[in-house]
């Protein structure tokens, strides 16, 4: 999942770095003003939890296994601001200890996994909760849908950044995007499944731990009940509009992921923008004329067929995720989670 150095061009790295720097700075600002001394250990614990949670392997095939990304899980428990900081720290420690993800691509990684995961995930979850309700079911359905959406939005954004990073003409980008999107839709289903089961488990066992809509961080001590959405925690009109906008943006990006293979005309448009802005010199790799000729020899029917296949896969994936969300929400009060918890417990 991590973007290594060298995949994106320096200009794109700088732009994404600036974006995520401001996002993280804003999160830190909100975090500082919203709560007292309790936040620091709580956020640190959440970051450590996501990091440790990524050590739990989920087998896919014989040698391949996946793991949690955790942005939506963190934001469901501690809210978007602390969640964003926690995810940023997870990415930083992964770079500093495992050299996972590049140093200059760190901004892009933060943007994809921390900002989209925490802010976008939170916005989408609240939007879904508005339709499904603030009940446990609403939280589970919302987190499942937002986990999937955040992965797809990150994939779409990556495609866009990748397209900006490399000179056009060398390869057919729509096919690369088709690969990328199909791959990420699988990752997204896995992430949605893990997040949904984990959150419904916590809701079963200790419902007071899950952050309700409007409260940014759990302020109260264990055993106290969280305030219902009242005067202190009720979102103002302005934040609700921003949230809806953010949710819309993430959902639009997720949908755009499936349209990206179609975007062959998009290539030309982007090229025009690039030449207008005079930023083509940032492309450091010289394009090779010999490979250039292959570009328009690509058989068109095959290309469009592939694009259609990806879109069908996308629609199927979306339906699967929504079905999953409803199933998990429905299965919530049943005792299955409690039964298997004995196995997982000490």
């Amino acid at each position: 999942m991590h973007i290594q150095d060298g995949v994106l061009s320096p200009a794109v790295c700088m732009a994404t770095g600036a974006l995520s720097l401001s996002a993280v700075a804003y999160s830190l600002h909100r975090l500082k003003e919203s709560v007292g001394d309790r936040t620091i250990p709580l956020t640190g614990m959440m970051a450590a939890l996501v990091f440790a949670g990524q050590m739990v392997n989920f087998p896919i095939g014989a040698p391949v296994s996946g793991h949690l990304l955790g942005g939506v899980l963190a934001t469901t428990v501690v809210g978007p601001w602390a969640g964003c900081i926690a995810m940023t720290l997870v990415l930083f420690v992964q770079w500093a200890l495992f050299s996972d993800g590049g140093l200059f691509a760190f901004g892009a990684n933060v943007l994809h996994m921390a900002v989209i995961g925490a802010w976008g995930g939170h916005a989408v979850r609240l939007l879904v909760q508005r339709f499904v309700g603030d009940s446990h079911k609403g939280i589970v359905v919302g987190s499942v849908v937002s986990a999937w959406c955040s992965v797809m939005a990150a994939a779409a954004l990556f495609c866009f950044e990748f397209r900006l990073s490399w000179p056009a003409g060398e390869i057919d980008f729509s096919k690369v995007f088709a690969w990328m999107v199909s791959f990420h839709s699988l990752i997204g289903v896995g992430e949605a499944l893990i997040t949904g089961v984990a959150i419904s488990f916590v809701l079963n066992q200790r419902p007071e731990l899950i952050c309700r809509a409007g409260t940014s961080v759990r302020l109260l001590h264990k055993g106290d009940l969280l305030p219902e959405t009242g005067k202190s925690s009720g979102p103002t009109v302005a934040t609700s509009i921003t949230r809806t906008l953010a949710a819309g943006l993430v959902i639009a990006l997720a949908i755009a992921a499936f349209l990206s293979p179609f975007a062959s005309s998009f290539d030309d448009g982007l090229e025009a923008v690039l030449s207008k802005l005079n930023i083509t010199e940032f492309n450091l790799t010289p394009s090779v004329p010999g490979l250039f000729e292959d570009y328009d020899k690509v058989p068109v029917p095959l290309a469009s067929w592939q694009a259609i296949a990806v879109s069908i896969a996308g629609i199927g994936g979306t339906l699967a995720v929504f079905g999953l969300a409803l199933l998990l929400g429905k299965a919530l009060p049943s005792g299955t989670a409690a039964m298997t918890s004995e196995v997982a417990g000490e």
């Binding site: 250990p41 614990m45 739990v56 089961v197 731990l209 264990k222 298997t340 918890s341």
Partner: peptide, 28 residues
């Protein structure tokens, strides 16, 4: 395996948050 892994995560989450509470108390 998937179900147990995810539930293990949930269990770990509960324990981590409880521990954060205790750590906070100790820090106070």
């Amino acid at each position: 395996q998937w179900q147990q892994g995810a539930q293990m995560l949930g269990r770990l989450l509960i324990r981590a948050l409880d521990r954060a509470d205790r750590v906070h108390g100790a820090m106070m």
